[in-house]
Amino acid sequence: MIQSDADILWNRKLGPMYFHLGLSLRGFEQAVPGQFITLRAQRQQSPLLRRPFSIHRLIQADNRVQGIEILYRTAGDCTRYLSTLAPGEKVNILGPLGNGFSLPDSGRIFLVAGGIGVAPMVFLAETLRQKSHPSEITIFLGGRTQTDLLCQKAFLDLGLRLELSTDDGSTGHQGLVTDLLKKHLTETKAHGIYACGPMPMLAAVAGLARSHAVPCQVSIETIMACGMGVCLGCALDDQVITDKYRHVCIDGPVFDAATLKFDN
């Protein structure tokens, strides 16, 4: 874990609410997919706390990790302020934090992302791609509308199979991303499912994984104050998890779906 100021390399708008941020910083050689950072952009005391964001990709050059990429959705004060920053300005980064996904040995993998939940999936796909044949990895992207389906080019460039769904039918299947997942799980044997997105989507994915007996890992979000296991503010209770009071920032953000009590 390091804490460091990072230079903004780029901060590009990707659509109405999404931005892609490139940061130059050292210390992320050991980072793994599913881990996150906390970020502080402002000098002022409001907003007060750092905000957590998944590591979207590592920036590699000359065989070294030269920085990280963040994909973010403007949600409130911090992200709106962040979206106004220009290359050359600095933000303060703490990371890498959290546990990350554990990677499978082999077999067919399904990645499932809802909306901004796609953020950690590119780093994960790139890492899986080093071991697995691209035809073994399918990514299911879901969103409200066409502009919520991010990173399609990155996945296609990796050679992965892409399945799209939107609530309004503007692209791909009209309906839930889990409809597509269900269809594929019925047709082919998968060896692992990795999901990130809103809680109801994770619940549905966990349910499908259980009924098809496929190992499944989900990345969960909670409000955080410290991101490093000291405030104990990010606890999950026994509504969500069998083993009560797990802390999302250190025990997660990735959890084995089998330990979650999603489908009640």
Binding site: S46, P47, T222, I223, C231, L232, G233, A235, Y245
Partner: peptide, 23 residues
């Protein structure tokens, strides 16, 4: 001590409220 049920923290103007429950 297991602590309180979540949500345990919320940010407020220039501050935060916590009810960790002394976990």
């Amino acid at each position: 001590a297991p602590g309180n049920k979540p949500p345990r923290i919320v940010e407020t103007a220039c501050g935060m409220l916590n009810a960790i429950g002394l976990e």
